[in-house]
Write a protein that binds this DNA or RNA. Structure first.
Ligand code: SF4
Ligand code: SF4
Lengths: 143, 143
DNA sequence: AAAATAAAGGACAATGTTGTCTTTTATTCA
DNA sequence: TGAATAAAAGACAACATTGTCCTTTATTTT
C-alpha cells in the first residue's frame, strides 16, 4: 500500500506525537528505537518531514523533534502525500490506462469507492489521534 | 497499490483473455505490443503465470499463450497473490505492528473495511469479465 | 570562548525491482 | 529429417528504494 519509507514516516510521526503530548522533545535515536527502524534512515525521513513543515525540530542540547498543536492536527494523508506522492489519491490501482467515466472498466465503480475510502480514512485521521490511551498505542509502533 | 510487474500481469491476462475469446493464441511479442509493456520482461511474467497454471501456453508454430474456459474464470486476486504475494490481503497498510482486535489502533475498523473491499473486488472480478464489449476495453490496456 | 549536543546535509553502499539479451527446449510443418 | 517457430530458462544490466556513515551547521551549557 505504502512504501517502507512512508510506513516509517507514519510510525515516527505517531511516536513524536505521543511524546509531544508529554511535552518531550525526542532525538532521532530515540525515535528509531521507539519504532524499531534503522536510525540513520529515520533521520533522513524526519529531516524530510521537517523540511516540509509537518514536524518541528530544534538543534543543540535539549533539542530534538516535536509537534506543536498545529502539527498534531495534520492528517496522515499529508505524510503520505509528501513521502509517496499522490499516486494513491489519483491513479488507477490496476495500472490500466486513462479511461473515462463514460467507458469505465468492469471494476471502476468499485475501485472508485475503495479509493474514496482510503482517502477519507487518511484525511480524517490526524496524527494526534494516536496519543489517547497512551500505554496501549505505544506497543504497536514496533513490529 | 500493486507492483509494476503485477500491473503488467493483470493487463497481460486481460489481453490474452480477450484474444482467447476470439480463439486466438498470442505470442509474447503480441501481448507486449497489445499492452505497451517491455517485451522480454513481459515474457518473464507470462512464464511465471504459466508455471503457476493461471495461463496455458504452447510452444512451436501456432503456439502462444491462451486461456481455456477455466482460466477465464480466474479472479484477479489469483494474479495478485502469485505476483505480489498476499501482503495486501493480510498485512496492515500502515505498517504498524501486530495489533489485536481487542486493542485496535484508531483506524483499524475503517482499514479493515477497506481491505475487505479490495479483497472482495479482486476475488469476484474474473479476467473473463474484461472481454465483453471488446472494442471498448481493448483501448485502456495501453497507457 | 570552548565543549557538548543534536539536527542537516552530502556521499556512498546494499538490496530489490524492473528491464534486456542470449541460449536451450519443445513443437510444427515442409 | 531439417528448418522454422515460439515458449522456457539463465545470465546480466539499469534503475529505484532502502540503509549507512561522515562532515557541517546551529544551539546550549559550562
Ligand atoms: S476504469 Fe477506473 S478502475 Fe478501470 S482501469 Fe480505468 S481508472 Fe482503473
Ligand atoms: S489496529 Fe489494524 S489498522 Fe491499526 S495498525 Fe493494527 S492492523 Fe493496522
Amino acid at each position: 500500500m505504502f512504501s517502507k519509507t512512508c510506513e516509517y514516516a507514519i510510525r515516527a510521526m505517531i511516536y513524536v506525537a505521543q511524546q509531544s503530548k508529554l511535552d518531550r522533545r525526542v532525538s532521532v535515536k530515540e525515535v528509531a528505537e521507539g519504532i524499531a527502524s534503522p536510525e540513520y534512515f529515520t533521520a533522513k525521513i524526519l529531516q524530510n518531514l521537517s523540511r516540509n513543515n509537518l514536524l518541528s525540530s530544534a538543534k543543540g542540547p535539549g533539542g530534538g523533534f516535536f509537534l506543536d498543536k498545529q502539527g498534531l492536527k495534520a492528517p496522515l494523508a499529508e505524510i503520505v502525500r509528501i513521502i509517496d506522492g499522490d499516486d494513491i489519491f489519483t491513479g488507477c490501482g490496476l495500472g490500466l490506462a486513462q479511461c473515462s467515466e463514460i467507458q469505465p472498466c468492469p471494476i471502476h465503480h468499485e475501485f472508485k469507492q475503495i479509493r474514496k475510502g482510503i482517502i477519507s480514512m487518511l484525511e480524517k485521521t490526524k496524527v494526534g489521534a494516536f496519543t489517547e490511551e497512551n500505554s496501549v498505542h505505544t506497543l504497536f509502533l514496533k513490529r
